[in-house]
Computed example of a mutant assay.
Amino acid sequence: MNNLPDNAVLLPIDMQQAFDEPQWPKRWNGQIDRNGLRVLEAWRSSGRSVIHVCHDSVTPGSRLRPEAPGNALRPGFEPQEGEAVIRKSVNAAFIGTDLDLRLRRMKCDTVVIFGISTDMCVSTSVRVGSNLGYRVILVEDACDCFDMQDGQGERIPAEEVHRIHVATLRHEFANVLRTDELVQALGTTT
């Protein structure tokens, strides 16, 4: 990919500490932090904008509530000076926030997304962003998700949940890259 515009914006989605707490089902991607930090470092080196997206749960007792320690961003994913933070309470980063307005004021037409979890807030944000007319790029190996139960009580492995969601996003809503491909497209060597 060699046509990544200078006005593209990186949207790390819900890279928050609560997802490491033991009550969550098994995750699949042991490289999410490594890959996400490589994307973030390369992006910052390219001089492009970053808008961090955080989930502020309104569910009583949630470890993602604003006052809970798990709401904090994971080490290394904290915003740097000049980087905005969007706080949402639903799955889509564009719903109930000023993200769309910010991006339009920045004359952004391309967003690059990674984060947690592939099948929930990442997928929903990709779909809504695409429906709003943005060119969306998903960095698939900088995403993670959890094992799920189907309607019959059977476990669906997180790897399969991820694979299927990435396939549907690739089909209609996003260009899909891996970390190495994005870093190469940015012309950096992280």
Rank of each mutant, 00 (worst) to 15 (best):
L182K: 00
I86D: 01
P60A: 15
L4M: 11
F19G: 03
V176Y: 02
Q184M: 06
V39Y: 03
G151K: 09
E140R: 13
V126T: 08
N35Y: 11
I86C: 00
R178M: 07
M106E: 12
L11W: 00
N71V: 09
F19N: 03
R104M: 12
P60G: 07
G61W: 06
T59H: 14
A8I: 10
C121A: 14
A142I: 06
V139Y: 07
R34A: 15
S46W: 05
V53A: 02
F173Q: 01
W24P: 03
S117L: 10
G36D: 04
L138M: 06
V58L: 15
G76K: 00
E172W: 02
L177D: 08
L138A: 12
V111N: 04
E160A: 15
P69G: 05
M15E: 03
G129W: 00
M120S: 11
E159N: 06
P69E: 12
Q31N: 15
G96C: 08
V9E: 03
V50Y: 04
S89M: 07
D98W: 04
V53S: 00
V128W: 10
M15Q: 13
Q31S: 14
H165D: 10
N91R: 11
M1F: 08
P5C: 11
R104K: 15
N35C: 13
P69W: 03
C108A: 14
T124R: 11
L10W: 02
T188P: 00
S62L: 05
R163T: 10
V85S: 05
A68L: 03
S117D: 12
C145W: 04
L73G: 00
W43A: 01
N175D: 12
A158K: 04
A142Q: 08
L103A: 07
L10T: 04
Q152N: 09
R102G: 06
S130H: 07
V166D: 07
L101F: 15
F77P: 00
T59G: 06
D109G: 11
F146V: 14
H55S: 05
S49T: 13
A8S: 13
L101W: 13
M1N: 11
V183C: 00
V39R: 01
F173T: 01
R155C: 12
R104I: 10
Q152H: 11
S89I: 01
G153Y: 11
E140I: 04
V53D: 01
S46C: 12
C143S: 07
V39D: 01
R163W: 08
M120V: 15
T97I: 10
L182M: 04
A42W: 02
I137T: 07
T168I: 10
P79K: 01
R63W: 08
G96W: 04
V126N: 01
D180M: 06
P66K: 14
T97V: 10
V128L: 14
I51W: 01
I137D: 03
S130M: 05
I86R: 00
R135M: 09
R27L: 09
Q80K: 08
R63V: 14
